[in-house]
Amino acid sequence: MTHLPEKLLDGYRNFMSGQFQAQTDRYKQLAREGQSPETLVIACCDSRAAPETIFDSGPGELFVVRNVANLVPPYAPDGEFHATSAALEFAVQALKVKNIVVMGHGRCGGIKAALDTEAAPLSPGDFIGRWMSLLSPATEAVVNNTMMTPVERQTSLERISIRYSLANLRTFPCVKILEDKGRLTLYGAWFDISTGELWVMNKETGDFERPEAL
């Protein structure tokens, strides 16, 4: 009997004989000097949309926070527990990242749950329902649009959620001040799991576009 699933142990063995062996010096340097990533990625915890895989990043290159539907709550210094806000604070204030990327993705389960207004809570705590209520105004508008198909509603809210998170990021004083000084840049992106396409939000129009080089 093992204390971890065998598949994870097999993966660890492959990691040690592959990536770790190939980048031993890099790992030693990170252990000795600490991390200094330039980019914070706020992504969904969906197992199909890992930022390190999508952006082919090595150890120490990305600081990643993942939650259901890649949401950023508004600034709320209320003494409660705020995991995403804590990670954001550390990335901006301690690591001094230069970029923040909010990355959503297609077929997001959190967004699907938000659109299913008749679904019963998964537990008495209804943690997902409460979390997705951050998008309530947009969700209501999309759900009530009878001219859209279910797939169109899903994709629309996935992308709108990214705009919401970017707007909420700017409610954090540390983010707004640094962005206004040109020392921090915010980006929005959406990844299509089915095709592998990456769509990037145009900062001027808010539209999601395929970069010409991709």
Score class of each variant (00 low, 15 high):
I177Y: 07
V175D: 07
E179W: 04
P150E: 06
S156Y: 11
E158H: 13
C174M: 15
S136K: 11
V151I: 10
N144R: 15
A138K: 07
P137Q: 08
E158V: 08
K176V: 01
C174E: 14
P150W: 01
V175M: 14
C174S: 15
R170M: 13
L166I: 14
T139M: 10
R163H: 08
E158M: 11
M132D: 00
T146P: 09
L157S: 07
R153G: 09
R170S: 05
E158G: 09
E140H: 00
G129E: 08
Y164E: 02
S161A: 15
V151E: 13
T155L: 11
T149L: 15
M147A: 06
V175H: 07
F172Q: 09
L134K: 06
R153T: 01
T155N: 09
I162M: 10
W131H: 01
I160L: 13
T155A: 11
P137N: 06
W131G: 02
W131D: 03
P137F: 00
S165W: 01
E152R: 15
V175T: 06
R159H: 07
L135T: 02
Q154N: 07
L157V: 14
T139G: 07
G129R: 07
P173E: 03
A141S: 08
I162N: 04
R170F: 04
M147G: 03
E140L: 04
R153F: 01
S161P: 12
T139K: 05
